[in-house]
């Protein structure tokens, strides 16, 4: 516990860490604010403007031409049951055509902006773990610390625990702020969640907190392995840019199952649908009639992520134990 307290103080005193933690609070709230703005209720002015645009378009000559053509052949315009009297209503521009705004919906907030917030937080915590460990190696202060605490694995564990703990706390607090804000927003607009939505949100939040904490630990472990912030950032960048291309090149159409983003989202969201050609439904004539999607469960996605983390941590611990310290 003594070493853990020391490492938490070292984290707290690092300016880069403080900046990243501020970003952890600000960015998800900015995302939420953006979503709140995009789903803001329609004002009288918005409706008046849409009605004006609809009226202008309805006065265009092509509208009357289209209505006339429809009335002469309603089945072609409106389908087999179309009748001529419905043509004018179906074709004349209406105000709602010009009101594109979606309403706030907690279920989609979870899968879109909520998932993005967790992804951003995980990335920021990975950066925090990286800069925290990289600083010790870049400045050489790691060797100084080992002159006081020569048990390398003990030091590794204390630092790793500090990063993990910080990630878990930051994730829990920021996601609580995020969903607290979302709940307030929904309440202020008299929007209620559909049954089971909040259960899904709590589950996503719990898995998200875990992903954020472990993301920080992964960044830390990789940097302890490479002993260089630049090397770890290069690896992260390489995986983000080239990783998917390599997996696709090797596995072809079946690659989606093994892509990190697929597995990450499956774990966080409790399941994720991805393109799977083996799941396509074929019509009797041999053509593809639908399907082509499989759903990856949270357990399967989490298992793959866990394997990646365990391998990175094991290599990091081994390198810390075996390699000479500069």
């Amino acid at each position: 516990m003594r070493l853990l307290r020391v490492e938490l103080a070292r984290l707290r005193w690092r300016r880069a860490v403080v900046v990243l933690l501020v970003a952890c609070v600000v960015l998800p709230l900015v995302l939420l604010a953006g979503y709140a703005w995009e789903t803001r209720p329609l004002s009288d002015a918005d409706i008046a403007q849409a009605e004006q645009m609809a009226a202008q378009d309805a006065a265009q000559p092509w509208v009357a031409q289209d209505i006339a053509a429809c009335e002469s052949d309603p089945e072609m315009y409106l389908g087999p049951d179309g009748v001529a009297t419905e043509c004018a209503e179906a074709i004349t521009p209406r105000a709602e055509y010009y009101l594109y705004r979606n309403e706030l919906e907690l279920a989609s907030l979870r899968t879109d902006v909520g998932a993005a917030a967790i992804t951003i937080l995980t990335g920021l915590l990975m950066l925090m773990g990286t800069t925290y460990a990289g600083h010790d190696w870049n400045t050489g202060s790691m060797s100084n610390q080992l002159l006081f605490v020569p048990r390398r694995l003990r030091l590794w564990a204390a630092k790793g625990a500090a990063v993990l703990l910080t990630g878990l706390v930051v994730g829990a607090v920021v996601l609580a702020l995020f969903w607290g804000g979302a709940a307030l927003l929904a309440s202020s607009r008299d929007i209620t969640a559909s049954p089971g939505t909040w259960d899904d949100i709590w589950a996503t939040q719990a898995r998200g907190v875990l992903a954020i904490g472990v993301g920080g630990l992964l960044g830390y472990a990789l940097t302890m392995l490479f002993r260089s912030t630049v090397a770890t950032l290069s690896l992260m960048f390489g995986v983000a840019i080239a990783g998917s291309l390599i997996v696709v090149a090797i596995l072809g159409d079946n690659a989606a199952r093994w892509l990190l983003p697929t597995n990450f989202l499956a774990f966080v969201l409790g399941g994720f649908s991805y393109y799977d050609p083996s799941a396509c439904v074929q019509a009797p004539d041999g053509s593809v009639s639908g399907g082509c999607e499989s759903t990856l469960s949270a357990v399967d996605g989490g298992t793959m992520l866990a394997v990646v983390v365990v391998v990175a941590v094991a290599l990091s611990v081994w390198a810390t134990h075996r390699r000479d310290v500069p």
């Binding site: 003594r2 070493l3 307290r5 020391v6 103080a9 070292r10 610390q145 006081f148």
Partner: peptide, 12 residues
């Protein structure tokens, strides 16, 4: 002082 505090606290 911060540098030395971290080292001192690490060994009690």
């Amino acid at each position: 002082r911060q540098n030395l505090l971290l080292l001192a606290r690490s060994v009690g």
